[in-house]
């Protein structure tokens, strides 16, 4: 008598959970993220909360790999920022919402130096000019243009990887049901062995 009642209630609860999960799917989640790339002599990027849009007015700090602060600023209303940066090592971008939300992103390689220092030896030597006599555009300019074109794409890939998916949410609920089911099974076996009815 009481078990069918409990089961019916459980079914209702799970059903409403599933509906809630379905509603939650498009806009959801909780995590501050930052993505940045080196474009010319500046670091440009975007800070956002996964699923709930841009993080506006959040402090951004650029540090070199030794931890020394290079530049700092804040994000705009759309969560984007562009800060000048010079140096050859890795650059660590930190955004801090000042309430416990912190995100870091490391721009690997030599950061902005890749665009500004690499072309210099080739510009000094003849080979690069000799290889492309028709090209009047300097290599540095091309690299800059390519970096600008690629940045949003890399950003999209990064955002896609951390987006919240319905199947993950439903899977999580499934895990919870399974886990507690297992626990109930183990407990009932133990009490069964003990001789309890």
């Amino acid at each position: 008598m009481r078990y069918p009642e409990a089961r019916r209630r459980l079914c209702h609860a799970l059903l409403s959970l599933a509906i809630l999960a379905a509603m939650a799917a498009p806009a959801s989640a909780h995590r501050l993220k930052v993505f940045a790339s080196a474009i010319g002599d500046s670091i440009e990027g975007e800070a956002y909360f996964v699923g709930s849009g841009p993080a506006a007015g959040v402090a951004v700090t650029l540090r070199d790999d030794a931890g020394k602060v290079l530049t700092s600023g804040t994000t705009g209303a759309d969560g984007r920022f562009a800060l000048p940066a010079s140096g050859t090592g890795d650059i660590v971008v930190t955004v801090d919402a000042q309430d416990g939300h912190i995100a870091r992103f490391t721009i690997a390689g030599s950061g902005p130096a890749a665009a500004s220092s690499k072309p210099q030896p080739s510009a000094a030597g003849a080979p690069s000019a000799a290889l492309s006599p028709a090209a009047t555009v300097p290599l540095a300019e091309i690299e800059l243009a390519v970096a600008r074109k690629i940045a949003p794409l890399a950003e999209q890939v990064d955002a896609l990887q951390s987006s919240l998916r319905l199947q993950d949410i439903v899977g999580g609920v499934g895990y919870i049901v399974g886990l507690f089911g297992l626990l109930a099974f183990l407990k009932s076996r133990r009490s069964g062995k003990g001789g309890a009815p």
Binding site: F49, G53, A55
Partner: peptide
């Protein structure tokens, strides 16, 4: 698990 996934942004945070 589900409720704490639903997120609302408020000012600089969410």
């Amino acid at each position: 698990f589900v409720a704490s996934l639903i997120n609302v942004s408020i000012g600089p945070t969410s």
